[in-house]
């Protein structure tokens, strides 16, 4: 291109600077500033902001609720990864290997909850779990299992596990499509070769499909973990608000309660820093654990 260096830099600045300034103000600055806030005791008004060093972090260790919120987060991570991956792999294999005519219908339907608002999903599922009107309890009574019926979201032991199903329901389609993409890239000749060697469908699945779609499986697991740690609090907030008796609070919903309901902004920021650190560490550990080399045949 015929243009002077100066013109090039002016154009570059035009392209990059305004966007980057806004990005810095609304994304980078708040993150660092959040870290800074975590060293203060602060109820919101600028006059009574007090530097207290690491006291907020010490408080985390004495907080009876916070360790439970971490456990709840990882409970959701583990159950969601297992639930979504088993079902998504099953559906992906079923839809690709078995040449079912109506396969596109299932793809379209299974994916739809991925673009539904969490508000809609949360409220619908609150109804499904409703103690008197809900589908779950009516279904149990219909099957003669009435004694299993319970106020799912109002029961301290069952509320958190009850949140897993809506999350799986909402998430499965995306990962199914991701895996389908992987499977359709596997060359047919591998299956033909496996068949000649006498491998049955089950063996073909374990020895051919699974190793070859490992990259997609890895990405899916990572993505589920990241989105759960960064976003599970939304469905918690809508369906239970952290209750009953804090039994469903995750780190993010606890942060919201501390900062925006009780106005402990410094302490809330401290929780945010822990969320950030924990999710970074989790992703690094996962990436290390899943560092299985690409299989090549």
């Amino acid at each position: 291109m015929v243009q002077s260096k100066k013109q090039k830099y002016v154009f570059l600045a035009f392209c990059l600077v305004p966007t980057f300034i806004l990005f810095s103000i609304f994304t980078l600055y708040p993150l660092f500033s959040g870290l800074y806030f975590s060293f203060f005791e602060w109820s919101g008004s600028s006059s009574n902001r007090e530097f207290i060093g690491l006291s907020n972090y010490e408080r985390l260790f004495q907080d009876k609720i916070f360790p439970r919120t971490i456990l709840h987060d990882y409970f959701l991570v583990v159950t969601k990864v297992i639930g979504i991956m088993i079902l998504a792999i099953f559906f992906a294999v079923a839809l690709t290997q078995l040449k079912i005519k109506e396969a596109p219908f299932y793809r379209v339907v299974f994916f739809f909850p991925n673009i539904m608002s969490v508000v809609v999903i949360g409220i619908l599922w609150t109804f499904i779990y409703n103690p008197s009107l809900g589908l779950v309890n009516s279904g149990l009574e219909f099957m003669g299992l009435g004694e299993w019926a319970r106020p799912w979201l109002g029961d301290e032991n069952w509320a958190l596990p009850s949140l897993v199903l809506p999350s799986i329901w909402a998430g499965i389609g995306l990962f199914m499509l991701l895996l389908i993409g992987g499977i359709s890239n596997v060359s047919k000749s591998y299956y033909e070769a496996a068949e000649i060697d006498g491998a049955n469908e089950w063996q073909q699945f374990w020895k051919v499909t699974l190793p070859l779609i490992w990259p997609q499986i890895k990405i899916s697991i990572l993505y589920i973990v990241i989105t759960t740690l960064n976003g599970s609090f939304i469905i918690v907030q809508i369906m239970t608000g952290g209750g009953p008796n804090n039994s469903t609070h995750v780190m993010g919903s606890y942060l919201y309660q501390q900062a925006f309901v009780q106005y402990n902004f410094g302490y809330g920021a401290t929780i945010g820093v822990v969320i950030l650190i924990l999710s970074l560490i989790t992703v690094l550990i996962l990436q290390f654990l899943m560092k299985r080399e690409k299989v090549q045949y």
Binding site: F11, F37, N230, G252, G272, L276, S279
Partner: peptide, 28 residues
């Protein structure tokens, strides 16, 4: 456009996709 730091800039934007923004919401 070729310029120094374009790779870094891209990485900065992309890694923001993975960072939990909930911490940033308080200062925001």
């Amino acid at each position: 456009i070729k310029f120094k730091g374009s790779g870094i800039l891209f990485t900065v934007y992309i890694s923001a996709m993975m960072i939990p923004m909930v911490l940033g919401w308080i200062p925001l």
